[in-house]
Amino acid sequence: MAKPDIHPKWYPEAKVICNGQVVMTVGSTKPELHVDVWSGNHPFYTGTQKMIDTEGRVERFMRKYGMFDQSAASDEQK
């Protein structure tokens, strides 16, 4: 059993606030939680995330660590 008088007050209906709006309620030790990003406006969850890979990550890694095959690169350019 929990010891009395050592635990913080529990708020079972704490409000999560993003951009001035209550977006959800959760259980917390604080009555209000102010957040910048939540699942409702995060690009990954909303489907607006853009994958930008102007220079191939593998090629960049290989070149950085000297593992880039120069003969393969010259074959691709022809």
Rank of each mutant, 00 (worst) to 15 (best):
A73K: 10
A14S: 09
E55R: 15
V26W: 10
T25C: 01
K15V: 09
H34T: 04
G20H: 01
L33C: 08
K9L: 13
V23L: 02
D69I: 12
D75Q: 14
K9T: 15
E59A: 13
P43Y: 00
A73I: 12
T54D: 14
I52F: 06
T29L: 10
G20F: 07
K15R: 07
P43K: 05
Y11G: 02
V26D: 06
D53L: 13
E32Y: 15
A14Q: 01
A72V: 13
G27H: 09
H34V: 10
N19G: 08
F61T: 08
S39R: 12
M24L: 01
N41L: 02
S71K: 14
H34N: 06
N19L: 01
P43R: 00
I52H: 12
M51T: 14
P12S: 08
A14K: 03
I52Q: 07
V23A: 01
A73S: 10
Y45I: 07
P12M: 07
H42A: 06
F61H: 09
E55T: 15
K15S: 05
H42G: 00
V16K: 07
Q21G: 04
E32Q: 14
V26F: 03
S74I: 11
D69Q: 07
Q21M: 07
M51C: 05
A14E: 01
R60A: 11
